[in-house]
Design a binder for these strands. Structure first.
Length: 220
DNA sequence: CACTAGATAATCT
DNA sequence: GATTATCTAGTGC
């Protein structure tokens, strides 16, 4: 027999690429309900598929930690649109992160996809992150985007349409008894809201890091 | 393992 | 000019 296969096995991996996307109504709910429900579902981009293990909820204009808190700007325009679309942003001069827009049209809430495990297209993912172990391929929001090849071109993409390269497909939902929540990572405002959700014990969940204000460049 | 600093650019003030 | 929903490489234990 072949040695160890990834969880789910190769047949499940192939299914992940062809399965129907989640219905748009899935996203047309309060963001703190959608976020934990996404755990275990599968994000597909091209021939790579990823089972979500960690996400964070951001409640739009009501949430000091959200990019949408200060209102509509060119960058945040996608979040103010209809649910079921991808909001991709560029940060720290080198990284992309991807969110899925939630709630009613105009609420500007979204779920940040923070980590997951690759269930199809392992070869492609490894090429994109050649120095990474399998466990670390998508362990963190910027690593996730690199492993799946997500960038500016995917901003605004409809993830509920079966014919687009980037889509969110139905997987095996996480066992509710294994879902944990806690404060969001790397965020300054809104610390009291425990809106980071993850699958307890899953090795692909990223380590928690509290927000640290960056030091300024030393003046020589 | 814990901790630090540096990379690098869009966005906002 | 300051800040940032990050990651990696480096040091030291």
């Amino acid at each position: 027999m072949a040695p160890t296969q990834p969880p789910g096995g190769p047949e499940v991996s192939a299914q992940a690429l062809t399965r129907e996307p989640l219905p748009r109504e899935f996203f047309d709910r309060p963001v703190e309900e959608v976020a934990p429900d996404l755990l275990g579902h599968v994000l597909v981009h091209g021939d790579v598929a990823l089972r979500l293990t960690e996400v964070e909820a951001y409640a739009g204009m009501l949430d000091p930690a959200s990019h949408a808190y200060r209102g509509l700007t060119p960058r945040t325009a996608v979040m103010f649109g209809p649910p079921g679309h991808a909001y991709v942003y560029f940060t720290y001069g080198m990284h992309f992160c991807v969110n899925l827009v939630c709630g009613e049209d105009g609420t500007a809430s979204a779920v940040l996809l923070r980590a997951g495990g690759i269930v199809a297209g392992m070869g492609t993912a490894r090429e994109r992150r050649p120095n990474s172990t399998e466990r670390d391929l998508a362990r963190g929001p910027a690593r996730l985007c690199t492993a799946l090849g997500i960038g500016r071109d995917q901003n605004g993409s409809d993830v509920c349409s079966p014919d687009r390269p980037l889509k969110i497909t139905a997987g095996e939902p996480a066992d509710p008894s294994r879902i944990r929540s806690g404060p969001r990572t790397g965020v300054n405002g809104g610390k009291e809201t425990p809106w980071r959700f993850w699958i307890d014990g899953d090795p692909t969940v990223s380590p928690y890091r509290a927000h640290v204000p960056r030091k300024r460049k030393p003046t020589a």
